[in-house]
Nucleic acid binder design. Structure first.
Lengths: 355, 355
DNA sequence: CTGTTAGCGCGTTCAG
DNA sequence: CTGAACGCGCTAACAG
């Protein structure tokens, strides 16, 4: 044993490291336990002693070690894990803010990870979060790969809320937006105006994309129409590829007269293509394609209301999505007795004409 | 050797709680220490035993408790705290993604808090983060209130990197973008085109706002001009108020012929006002204000390149800001011997004409 | 190659 | 009103 200091103190007064209750106790001339008591409200401690301790805390710049604290039985970590497929996406950023707002109100902090649509990465994140003893998880599930790691049993009983997307085979609390209805309404509006060649710009591999394509199809079927496969373009992830896809559509022998776009990246790309075409054919009197194309799209964006096309937007509040998901989680965490079976919430959307 | 248990187990086999090394050890028929060894690479453990342990881990759904782990001396928490004035702002969202990317590459997770431009909230967040033993902090300092809590001494030696904004009186690593130069260049471009009544839309209370206004002023002074105070509008936080401010400017007896806007909210608002005015005076031949106003603004946005005005944009990469800030932090954390004095990095911007 | 001991910072339990 | 002891989960350091 033998660090064997001459004046051997049990604790060799470490300057560099963080001060502990012990250090504060020394400084205040009391026992660690008294410090602990003061820190948790000061019940049963003389006022004078409380002040002495408070002063010591101040002098030493003491911060109670939450990690050590959460080690005690019964104590919770105060942490919630959030994994998002792309933090930089303004939509999810707003969702994240909603989550943070509610978590904060419930005295929790959020650990945030970016899964980049990669199920393996997501799995690692979740495992790490559980290792840090998060009390719950909010997950925007990645579209690619297996999702077995989200099974409740695999999570060691940590409750999870799926946001924005559901996952096949995983039964958990889920908050979605009404993708099908939004897409259906928007498409129906285009068809009602008489358009019969309506293009679809979006995804098919992502959950929301599938649902929005379904709404697009359903709207057609309600009028006993069948969407032309040639007009369905999927897989564009960014504005650039969306613009190219739209340009291709405009170049068709029988181009669309309207387009429904399943997300704002595609909407912006489509409008760019339309504007570019309009400029190109400006003086020619050709009128070839770009003019008076009607657009409807999911999700708003900065300039939606002064876009130079006739535009309708399927609106919904990402912040609300985050708040609802968080509320659902804390309902399980803090609420009393909960129903065991998972709940699915589908948030409504509204169609807004911007012309 | 004493499993020593007729009746009394030291550990009463808790089903509900998370399994521990102890539980895994029991399941695998080894000691906790062996489990620990396997978990940290399996050095000096027979392969057969490793497999047995691995199986036990799998069966029990064991996750190593990182909080307990980080309690051991020398061990670090693997956490970095990030406070942002507004997570939902796409600009900061992208910055956050940059931070996450680098943190992830360095094996750290990020704790994220929203300060909402409130110094008190920011202080609480920072205190809480330190309580959780974050290894470092990345802070977008709030504009309102005192910032004493960001002093290195108050932080108990936890390194902090200030991002996007500096703070008076706080000397810490800082990553800024070149606000002054960006604003100067953009304004100079307008003046070079002959404009003599150039408006300013932005802030004065926020650090970046002050710097951008400075650039605006400097550009004028370089030509021995003085900006007209009447054309300087500050305090608009959102698109709506920016639009109103711009409308007021257009209503002046001697309206501006160009406008420099210090952020994208203001730019979008300005363009809206201009477009609205243009529409209102369309048939009248009055030409009153809205037409051919020239715009230059800080920060890009969705539709910048098809905006219906002559527009220039001061561009910079928020993701890069985040990556640089994080890199600076990890330079101190993981890099060997570091310079003690704080470093300030000013990222360049570029002016881009979109017409 | 494997197990035992001890203690990281904190707070509950029980004595004084 | 205050303090001592114990253990939360984990892993260096030291036996064996």
């Amino acid at each position: 044993m033998t660090t064997s200091e001459p004046g051997d103190a049990k604790r060799p007064t470490r300057r560099s490291s963080n001060p502990t209750v012990h250090d504060v106790a020394l400084e205040a001339g009391v026992s660690p336990m008294t410090v602990s008591r003061v820190l948790s409200g000061g019940k049963n401690v003389r006022l004078e002693v409380q002040e002495r301790v408070a002063r010591a805390v101040e002098t030493l710049g003491y911060h109670r070690n939450e990690n050590a604290r959460s080690l005690r039985p019964g104590h919770r970590s105060g942490l919630v894990g959030v994994t998002i497929t792309n933090i930089a996406n303004p939509y999810y950023a707003e969702m994240l803010r909603g989550v943070e707002e509610i978590a904060s109100a419930h005295g929790r902090r959020i650990l945030v990870g970016n899964s980049n649509e990669d199920a393996d990465l997501e799995k690692q994140l979740v495992a790490d979060f559980i290792g840090r003893r998060v009390e719950g998880l909010i997950v925007v599930p990645s579209s690619a790969g297996d999702a077995a790691h989200l099974q409740l049993e695999r999570l060691g009983g940590v409750p999870v809320v799926l946001a924005s997307r559901a996952v096949g085979g995983v039964s958990a609390d889920t908050v979605l937006i009404d993708d099908v209805e939004g897409a259906r309404t928007a498409t129906a509006a285009l068809l009602a105006e008489g358009h019969r060649r309506v293009a679809y710009l979006g995804q098919r591999s992502v959950f929301t994309g599938r649902r929005r394509l379904e709404g697009f199809t359903v709207a057609h079927e309600a009028l006993e129409l069948t969407p032309d496969e040639e007009l369905i373009r999927v897989g564009q992830q960014d504005v650039g590829s969306a613009e190219r896809a739209m340009t291709e559509l405009l170049d068709l022998a029988d181009p669309p007269t309207a387009v429904f776009s399943a997300n704002n990246r595609n909407t912006v790309g489509a409008i760019r293509a339309i504007v570019a075409r309009r400029r190109a054919t400006a003086g020619t009197g050709a009128g070839g394609g770009g003019d008076d194309i009607r657009v409807a799209g999911f999700d708003s964006f900065d300039f939606a209301d002064i876009a130079p096309v006739r535009l309708s937007i399927v609106d919904h509040d990402a912040g609300d999505l985050g708040r609802r998901a968080a509320a659902m989680l804390f309902d399980r965490l803090d609420g009393g007795a909960q129903p065991v079976e998972p709940r699915v919430l589908e948030l409504p959307v509204t169609l807004r004409d911007l012309f």
